[in-house]
Amino acid sequence: MAEWLPLAASAEAAGIDAELGLVHLLMLVLFIGWGGWFAYLLVRFSRRASPRASYAGTRGRVAMAVVALVAVTELTLLAAVSLPAWRARATSVPTDPGATEVRVVAEQFAWNIHYPGADRRFGRTALALVSPDNPLGLDRVDPAAADDVVGVNELHVPVGRPVIVYLSSKDVVHSFTLPEMRVKQDVVPGTLATTWFTPTRTGRWEIACSQLCGLAHYRMRGIFTVDEDAAYVSWLGEQAPFARTAPAPGR
């Protein structure tokens, strides 16, 4: 299974991949089991091998017992594996104080990336302030905004610590996808979504959009880089904080 999937590079990936493998194993067993039986029936009861059909047929007790077994297996899989995994995935936001927090604001057809800066607070944003040089509408007056870092399509995170991503969309539904992290989260305008992951190895991958969002959906691609701590800090340091980005003339 693993060689079919994208590289697994987050702490969450192993669990998802294991469940995926388990489910596919079950599927394979069922398909081969039923398929083998099916093939046997076709050969054994073809007109040539079985010139006369039996009205009474078979009682099918074994077959229906197998059906019941499959039903029980599915529900067990759900209760024992999938539900706990989803609870962990969807509701337990990491509380680690060292977690990296970042906002990602999707729009046709780009990912705006917003870091809170050294004060670890995101600056205030307002719809009225949105302009070509300020795509997020960050408030220049808000002191919390001064050290924020805003970029497009370049997400950097440090390895080995949880990353929390706050997602929103400016226009239509997008879906924030990091295949190597096994992260995918729809971004529905009007609602905030949160997702998280802990990268376990460094590398340079991609952000993909998984929800049809218009004509350039196919190239709504960002770069996603997992760095060593030091490299991450120095990359972030090279980015101009919001206060030092010049507003367009006339504003």
Partner: peptide, 14 residues
Amino acid sequence: TALLLSLHRGSIRF
């Protein structure tokens, strides 16, 4: 499964 069981002890014309 019922469809497969229907084949059981039938006389199948292809």
